[in-house]
């Protein structure tokens, strides 16, 4: 089942959502962005709880925008799980099948099958309020999946759980999603989570999708200032002048050879590179090197996160533990041209 959002437009007070998105059969796509970027609204439009002012939502080419939520056959896991408090775990999961008037045996078999999938065998008779957060989350997932909908929507499903549980549950979700080959849209504001489980990520900001790509591409080759800053740690150094022909950017830390210059830039331009791509050198004047004083040093076991003051700019660098340096030292760093990209605040599309 593929889903296609075409020129969705929705205005709520001061906020405007404008998005087009195509998710392929069996794909897990994350909508990633800070709160208020429109990711949940997008999800609610797909589920039918919110209406769009313009645009179409189609499942496998069939327009569903006119259907009420109960007719869409789209599974959804809510941020607060929304388990029915007056029903047992079994009754919660069996609710959808019962509405569809399945026969008793089929309901029983399916509920048991999905309890097994989410590792909650034996929980049938439990009251949902006595379950832990993680268990509630699994019940919610089983309930959304048991009728085998064509599309699964997850609205920040792990945001209420602690960090350790979040990691193991996101693996579970990914495993189940791949087992069932169900097309899934996953809303999150946690970039690490999105990178870990998605086939593709739609980075959203201010009601717009600014970049839609595979996790590796988003991380290494952001085409947009917002996705560069939002995902992972990054250095963004303002460009003073740019020489496109020579692939050369003049910045406060010196002249840098770059591997990529965004073709359609508007507004200020920046050189982007990841801290882990910085290499420590002895300072012999090869190209793309710069020197500065270490102003912050944070040790994390495998790495050292340094902040280095180069002229008036702070550059972040991630060095392996065995590098010997301390606060106040002068350090020389080199960055390979292919790891530097020039991008801008906005792009013309």
């Amino acid at each position: 089942m593929s889903i296609n959002l075409k020129s969705i437009y929705r205005k709520i007070d001061e906020f405007t959502l404008q998005i087009s998105l195509e998710v392929k059969q069996g794909e897990l796509v994350s909508l990633l962005g800070p709160s208020g970027c429109g990711k949940t609204t997008t999800l609610r439009i797909i589920a039918g709880f919110e209406m769009s002012d313009r645009g179409t939502v189609s499942l496998n080419g069939r327009d569903i925008a006119h259907l009420p939520p109960e007719k869409r056959d789209v599974g959804m896991v809510f941020q607060d799980y929304a388990l029915f408090p007056h029903m047992t775990v079994y009754e919660n999961i069996a609710y959808g099948p019962r509405l569809r008037k399945w026969d008793k045996k089929r309901i029983d078999d399916s509920v048991k099958r999905f309890l097994k999938i989410v590792h909650l065998e034996g929980f049938e008779k439990r009251k949902t309020e006595n379950l832990s957060g993680g268990e509630q989350q699994r019940v919610a997932l089983a309930r959304a999946l048991v009728t085998e909908p064509q599309l699964l929507l997850l609205d920040e499903p792990l945001s209420a759980l602690d960090a350790k549980l979040r990691k193991s549950l996101r693996k579970e979700i990914r495993r189940i999603q791949q087992e069932l080959k169900i097309t899934t849209i996953y809303v999150t504001h946690d970039q690490e989570e999105a990178l870990a489980i998605s086939d593709r990520i739609a980075v959203m900001e201010g009601g717009k999708c600014v970049q839609f790509d595979r996790p590796e591409i988003l991380f290494r080759e952001p085409s947009h200032l917002f996705s560069a800053g939002f995902i992972g740690n990054s250095n963004l150094i303002e460009v003073q002048s740019l020489n496109r022909a020579e692939s050369e950017a003049e910045t406060a830390i010196g002249k840098l050879q770059v591997g990529f210059i965004s073709p359609n830039m508007i507004g200020k331009a920046f050189v982007f590179f990841r801290p882990d791509k910085c290499l420590k050198t002895n300072g012999t004047g090869s190209s793309n090197t710069f020197s500065g004083v270490i102003v912050d040093d944070e040790y994390s076991g495998t790495h050292r996160s340094l902040e280095i003051k180069v002229e008036d700019v702070i550059v972040k660098a991630l060095l392996f533990d065995n590098s010997t340096c301390k606060m106040g030292d002068t350090i020389h760093l080199q960055i390979a041209p292919e790891d530097c990209r020039v991008i801008s605040e906005t792009t013309s599309e």
Partner: peptide, 15 residues
Amino acid sequence: KISLREAALNLGASS
């Protein structure tokens, strides 16, 4: 919670 109602609708229950 509104989400309880939405969850039921989402599972296919009429209003």
